[in-house]
């Protein structure tokens, strides 16, 4: 069992959890993820590693509630335990001195940017971090990312903080203005990552995106996470999760991610009521 040492909602529907998982923390590297099973009957679900403390043996995840499995996770509290946490999985990001590295993060992807920013900066890169959120109240990790980057730019869709627009707009403007960006790494929803690839393609800037297909085992033995990159089939869990945005078959990824949308809605419709006020009574009633 993996104890949750701290869990809190740091922005609307953005939950940060610090979990005791020493085997994962010991080997975690930027770009990798873990697979979680909240309880023995839950699904196996992947989450990007945002941060870790090798000495304390803890990992930090940022989770949004978007369905049944994440709902189960979000309802846990500090002090509860998760049944299974396995990782770090996936191929770590190449961390080298590239020059100027632009990291783009949206929604849960903002959290994922943290460890990459630190590692890229330590490797001697100039780190430009661009984070986007719908509105100012959805931004988080500002201070941490400010410290980890050479330049931090915030964007909001409604213009309530920072630049109005998307993170990819900022990158596009910089490229159009002739700024040198040697590598772009984008983590966010499929739409945002797809746009990142579209924006950088005419400039020929290598862009890596963290693909998020449905996963089952996460260790390369089932192929549920198949994606097509450069006309070849890859497994996102062992060949990825980061791939070249310019080579990804986005249409296929969109549709494969919707494979179980009917079942997902049925599952959430059947969920018991959530008694925030009297959780113990609710659990006893539902047992």
């Amino acid at each position: 069992m993996f104890e949750i040492l701290d869990k809190r909602e740091i922005a609307p529907n953005i939950h940060k959890a610090v979990i005791h998982a020493p085997a994962v923390a010991k080997k975690a590297r930027p770009g990798q993820f873990v697979i979680l099973m909240v309880d023995e009957r839950a699904e196996r679900v992947p989450f990007t590693l945002c941060d870790w403390d090798r000495d304390a043996g803890t990992i930090t995840l940022v989770v949004q509630e978007v369905g049944q499995s994440t709902r189960k996770f979000v309802l846990l509290n500090t002090g509860d335990s998760i049944a299974h946490v396995v990782g770090p999985l996936g191929v770590p990001l190449e961390i080298e001195r590239f020059g100027t590295v632009a990291l783009a993060g949206g929604c849960y992807g903002i959290g994922a940017t943290l460890c990459t920013a630190r590692a890229m900066k330590a490797a001697g890169n100039r780190v430009l971090t661009v984070i986007e959120a719908d509105s100012h109240y959805l931004h988080y990790f500002r201070d941490e990312l400010q410290a980890a980057s050479d330049e931090l730019i915030q964007t909001t869709i409604d213009g309530s903080e920072g630049i109005k627009g998307h993170s990819v707009d900022v990158i596009k403007q910089k490229l159009e203005a002739g700024e040198t960006i040697d590598r772009v790494i984008a983590v966010g929803c499929v739409f945002m990552m797809m746009l990142a690839g579209n924006v950088t393609k005419p400039f020929g800037v290598k862009t890596l995106v963290a693909l998020n297909p449905i996963m089952l085992d996460g260790t390369g033995m089932c192929g549920a996470c198949r994606v097509t990159v450069g006309n070849e089939t890859k497994f996102a869990c062992v060949d990825g999760p980061f791939f070249d945005a310019h080579e990804v078959d986005w249409d296929e990824l969109w549709d494969r991610r919707a494979a179980y949308s009917d079942e997902e809605i049925h599952a959430v419709a059947r969920t018991e009521i959530i008694d925030h006020h009297r959780p113990a009574a609710a659990r006893a009633r539902l047992a």
């Binding site: 089952l216 260790t219 390369g220 033995m221 192929g223 549920a224 198949r226 994606v227 089939t233 296929e252």
Partner: peptide
């Protein structure tokens, strides 16, 4: 030997094509 082989025919990544491993693991 857990790495599944696929047929390598067109359409293999359509929704509804599963490796036996995935199907049985589920």
């Amino acid at each position: 030997a857990g790495l599944p082989s696929f047929m390598e025919v067109p359409g293999e990544n359509l929704i509804g094509v599963y490796s036996a491993n995935e199907y049985l693991t589920r």
